[in-house]
Amino acid sequence: MQPLAGQRTLVTGPHLGAADTDMMAWYDGDKTAPEVIVAAALDGIEAHWPELLADAWSRQVKAWLSEDPGVIYRETEAVLTA
């Protein structure tokens, strides 16, 4: 079996926080409009990005990855309990 890249198949992994959809209706925090997520995803595909950070939350989480895990836990708790 040939890898997808070898077949010239682009795989783009979109990452997002909460989108304003029925599935997230229970969530009271900030949500991104679905059309914003879709537009970002299409832009990422057109740009041949293997990874797409579709909203502010996913960009923040990505930035936290290089931090001490304690920072992530404290800042996430502060956001979720605000």
Rank of each mutant, 00 (worst) to 15 (best):
G44F: 02
A41L: 13
R8P: 00
V36M: 03
A47T: 04
R74P: 07
A5S: 13
G70P: 02
K31W: 05
A47D: 11
A82Y: 09
L80G: 06
G13M: 13
K31R: 10
W57Y: 14
D22P: 10
R74W: 00
E35Q: 10
L42I: 14
A18P: 06
G17D: 01
D28N: 15
V38N: 05
G6H: 06
L42M: 10
H15A: 15
E51D: 11
I37L: 12
R74Y: 01
P14F: 03
D43C: 01
L4P: 08
Q2H: 13
P34R: 05
M1K: 13
I37G: 00
V38M: 09
E35T: 05
I72Y: 10
T21Q: 05
Q2E: 14
A78R: 12
L65A: 12
A56F: 07
S58L: 02
P34G: 04
T32I: 08
P3D: 10
E67H: 11
A25I: 07
I45R: 00
G17L: 06
V36W: 00
S58H: 04
L42T: 10
R74C: 01
M1D: 14
D28G: 14
A47W: 00
I45D: 09
G17E: 04
P3C: 09
A78E: 09
V11I: 15
A47F: 03
K62A: 15
Y27L: 09
T76D: 06
A40W: 00
L53P: 03
L80N: 11
D20K: 11
P3M: 04
M23T: 12
D30W: 02
V11T: 11
Q60N: 07
L10C: 03
A19L: 12
A39Y: 02
S58R: 08
D22T: 12
G6R: 03
A41V: 15
T9E: 07
E75P: 06
W26A: 15
D30S: 06
W64L: 02
G13R: 15
D20I: 03
D43L: 06
H15S: 12
M23G: 09
P3S: 14
E46R: 13
E75F: 04
A33D: 13
G13V: 15
A56V: 09
G70K: 02
A40I: 05
G17H: 03
G6A: 14
A5P: 09
R74M: 03
K62Q: 15
Y73G: 11
M23F: 13
E77Q: 14
W49E: 14
